[in-house]
């Protein structure tokens, strides 16, 4: 269907330029990651490039950190990973549950409400995170509440809302209102029509939103830096104290494994929710 966008045969300078720029973009996106991945398999003690020999030694060393009761296990790492996962799961759940009905309203009613709300929900993207972090901290401390893990969930939800909403609105825009009306005329309640007809059609947008929510929450550093406590700390905070104090191939191995965890989670979301309408 979309073959026409880039001509398959001929196309000359146009096709060449498109592919050249696309490759350049891909290179810029992935080069540092490729380098880091290569170096994490280095057999050497230090990070010289390219590695003279390759080995799995840093990965073996790193897996010892994750073993529950091993000699080299690091309880703080395990707790931080668990907290990060919990926070990300809550953030994804909350953000999608609130954005789906909002997207529905905005697209169906349109006009000024849509513009205003979209602007409002873009704000978290515009605010410099450093100052937002300190504001959240000052507010949390003045409230005198035992927030626990919600210290992080609440600001993270705000950060991901722009992404989740945009994706949901995007998906909602392409849903024909007649489908819904048809369901209602056949006797379904408006709520049933929404849940049974609209939500499944919005799926690709919801999944895209969830993927962004996951990535942003799981890797958020700046606000978390102000909000974490010694009891509620996340993987990026753990990584930060580690990378500032030393940089060796084992640090690179850990960061590469974190990337793999991210990817596994993204693919899991995709698999669980998408079925055939796979986004990725």
């Amino acid at each position: 269907m979309r073959v026409g966008i880039i001509p398959q045969q001929s196309g000359g300078s146009y096709k060449f330029t498109i592919y050249l720029l696309a490759s350049l973009g891909l290179l810029i996106a992935t080069l540092p990651v490729i380098i880091i991945a290569l170096m994490s398999f280095s057999a050497a003690e230090t990070t010289s490039f390219p590695p003279q020999a390759y080995s799995l030694r840093w990965y073996i060393k790193m897996f010892e950190l994750f073993q529950p009761n091993g000699e080299n296990s690091d309880a703080s790492l395990q707790i931080a990973l668990l907290t990060s996962l919990k926070v990300a799961a809550l953030v994804m759940l909350i953000a999608s549950v609130v954005c789906v009905p909002l997207a529905y309203v905005l697209v169906r009613s349109g006009g000024r409400l849509k513009n205003g709300m979209e602007l409002l929900f873009t704000l978290p993207l515009v605010f410099p995170l450093v100052i937002l972090g300190i504001a959240f901290l000052l507010i949390a401390e003045s409230l005198d509440l035992e927030l626990g893990i919600w210290r992080l969930v609440i600001p993270h939800v705000a950060l991901v809302l722009p992404f989740v909403l945009r994706n949901c609105v995007g998906a909602m825009s392409s849903i024909d209102i007649e489908l819904e009306q048809a369901a209602i005329s056949l006797g379904a309640s408006p709520l049933r029509a929404g849940v049974d007809i609209v939500v499944p059609l919005m799926k690709p947008g919801i999944i895209a939103g969830l993927v962004f929510a996951l990535i942003i929450s799981f890797n958020e550093f700046t606000i978390t830096y102000f909000m974490y406590t010694v009891d509620v700390t996340t993987l990026p905070i753990w990584m930060y104290s580690r990378t500032v104090s030393s940089l060796d191939p084992s640090t690179l191995a850990i960061s590469f494994v974190i990337v793999l965890i991210d990817l596994a989670l993204i693919l899991l979301i995709d698999k669980l929710l998408a079925g055939r309408n796979s986004l990725l």
């Binding site: 891909l26 990337v259 993204i266």
Partner: peptide
Amino acid sequence: VAILMPMILNLLIQSYG
């Protein structure tokens, strides 16, 4: 996944790359 990479890998580590 390749395009999402810059958002996933720790920025400090990417800067070493």
